[in-house]
Simulated scan of single mutants.
Amino acid sequence: MMPFKKWFGSKSQNEEWIERIDSENIPSHVAVIMDGNGRWAQKRGLPRVAGHHSGMKNVKKITMAADAIGVKVLTMYAFSTENWKRPREEVEYLMKLPLEFFPKEIDELIANNVQIRMTGWHEGVPDYTMKAIQDAIDQTKHNTGLILNFALNYGSRREMLQGVKRLTEDVVSGKISLDAVDEAMFSSYLLTHPLPDPDLLIRTSGELRISNFLMWQLAYSELWFTELCWPEFTEKHFYEAIQEYQRRARRYGGL
């Protein structure tokens, strides 16, 4: 078995949990629906935005946990196209979180060879939000380790419709032939290209749906749900999800 990567040197309880994981069967791409921030805060008599702040801090912990075992891509569902329907004050707060997260964490992300990416549409997102994200993308673009991909202002139905339109335009213009269109080609027209499809989807807060997230890409992903809200989802719970993934047989429709 190959050794796992160590963050910060000394042996921790995280490393004890890691020892129970098969290093030869690590999901290459893990996607996470970080749900339940507001409910976590309300149960504690706090404003919903306090839950979002705690959830933001949890991103780093789970990124470190994923990187430590060799996950290649970690996609976090940060803000959906439907989230614009939330109260204006909450949306404004969410849009300011990247301005706090990236300046605080970027040096450590760079030191650990993490590359930042964004999947979603820029339009509608405040300029100050996009600047914070783009600065982080630019500063980490040459890193070759874990890809930390934020799905922000993202919705899968819009993504697929946009992909169909672009693909149709290329067929009509003669750029590609209709006979050449297959699943792999269609995937290349999606926002997530060239990232691999997720092997594992984790959703917190007890909801049992995928909520317009990576619907094409999740066709054969393993799904793992927990009642825990995102701010209380720890590295231990992440590793439990990985262990459950490793207990499953992925047959892709075969025997």
Rank of each mutant, 00 (worst) to 15 (best):
G36S: 08
P194V: 08
Y154L: 04
M215Y: 00
H193N: 07
S205F: 01
Y220S: 15
T192S: 09
P196K: 15
R39E: 02
D179T: 11
E108W: 15
K11N: 08
V71I: 15
Q115C: 15
R209M: 15
V30P: 03
N25G: 10
L46E: 13
S205G: 06
M118T: 09
P27D: 12
G55T: 06
L191C: 01
G145F: 10
L46H: 08
T168P: 04
G9V: 04
R203N: 07
E207F: 09
K175A: 15
W7N: 05
T168A: 11
A50H: 12
N58S: 14
I21Y: 00
F8N: 08
P47C: 07
T204M: 06
E19R: 12
P231R: 06
A66M: 12
M56R: 07
G70F: 05
S80F: 06
E222L: 07
D127V: 04
I176D: 08
M2W: 06
E207W: 07
K11R: 06
R39G: 03
A219Q: 13
K141F: 09
K61T: 12
G9A: 09
E227S: 13
A31S: 14
A65M: 08
Q139F: 05
D199L: 09
I210N: 02
H122E: 15
S187G: 12
H29Q: 15
R209C: 14
